[in-house]
Design a protein around this nucleic acid. Structure first.
Lengths: 205, 205
DNA sequence: CAAGTGACCATTTTAGGTTATAGTCACATC
DNA sequence: GATGTGACTATAACCTAAAATGGTCACTTG
């Protein structure tokens, strides 16, 4: 299970190199424990026994390392969603599970790995590639569910697929985007269910 | 048109007093020009020709003054919505106009009176009464529209009214709440229309 | 008693000099 | 050429003491 390189951050030097992996590994631990800001590039260098300058042979910037970690973090959310979806049968059920799992996994990340969550939130706020890629993957999952639901005759087929997906994503957006989600924690228990109901009603053929 | 006292902030002394109005007036100008933080209570006192201590005969705290200004600011949004709704005929149209006017007015506030907008955003983030009251007024407007639409046979009647209103408010929330809205500025052109369509489809009888 | 304030305190905010950090580069070693 | 680094700079983060601010209260004044 390679959860790291989903959206390539700006890399330098050989893309596949043991030192790069060491950097990412050390960054994962340090960022999670001390946070992005309180971790210095020198800290990471020291942790893997190299000089700070050598880090820059593999990453463009500290932010690029942050992107890698952020992408890996968001990948775990996507992985949780994919796993939950595997156990679902109908497209209707899948849509509910997608929404619910996305939120519960993100919220659990918020409470259990706050430092990593903060990186993701910042990433979303700044429009980093890792956050954009995350959004696109959720959208893609949505595309597949809707398409399947249309083929199964469960969902209406008049509206263009893109449009349907776009508006559903719009509904989910405040809960997909970590920056927004943290301001909606008081809604997290009911919103996925209720909004799924709303969306499904609007999808009725 | 009294736009000031919609949700009573913690007040002191006579609720109706020329000095209170002077304070609110001066605060409106100062907060709008210099921002909440950069305006000191002494500034307000100086502006109306009294001592700082006298201010506290009328307001519990600086925040209470901020609440008053925030309430007035949000009242202008509600007023714009009410005015726009007056020109609408069907409940369907009203729902669209409610959403659209709310967003455009808020966004215009964001760009034209940023300092006041920031107070509103902060208010929403901290759960100040002024922000809560604002949300409740939007909800109430929603209740009236849905009720009217149900009576007119335009909207379905099976779901409990509260539930329907709640979920629609949930959809609108990221655009009602100033704190969230400012992170959704790139969506404001399309979201109201598209989400209104979604909601209306789900309301079909 | 209503209107109004100067003096006061605890807590923030600010200003600035100092340190720490991100990022580069010329150079060394193998 | 691949691996690796110490020394360097510009900028950002971090102090800390002084100033400013929110808020109170005993006290005038009419």
């Amino acid at each position: 299970m390679n959860e790291i390189e989903s959206s390539l951050p700006q890399v330098r030097g050989p893309a596949d190199h043991s030192v790069r992996e060491q950097i990412v590994l050390a960054a994962g631990e340090h960022f999670s424990r001390y946070g992005y800001d309180k971790t210095t590039v020198s800290d990471l260098a020291k942790a893997i026994g190299f000089s700070k300058a050598y880090i820059y042979k593999f990453f463009d910037s500290k932010q690029a390392i942050g992107e890698a970690i952020c992408a890996a973090t968001l990948d775990t959310v996507v992985a949780a969603v994919d796993e939950a979806l595997a156990g679902a049968s109908t497209p209707t059920e899948k849509l509910r599970i997608l929404f619910k799992t996305l939120v519960t996994t993100s919220v659990s990340l918020f409470f259990n790995d706050r430092k990593l969550y903060d990186i993701a939130a910042n990433s979303a706020g700044e429009g980093w590639p890792s956050a954009i890629a995350y959004g696109q993957r959720i959208r893609q999952t949505l595309v597949e569910i809707i398409r399947e639901g249309r083929q199964a005759g469960e969902f209406e087929r008049k509206t263009p697929l893109d449009e349907t997906v776009h508006v559903i994503y719009l509904v989910m957006h405040p809960y997909v985007n970590p920056l927004l989600l943290q301001h909606n924690l008081d809604l997290v228990d009911d919103a996925p269910t209720q909004l799924s109901n709303l969306v499904l009603r609007s999808l009725a053929p």
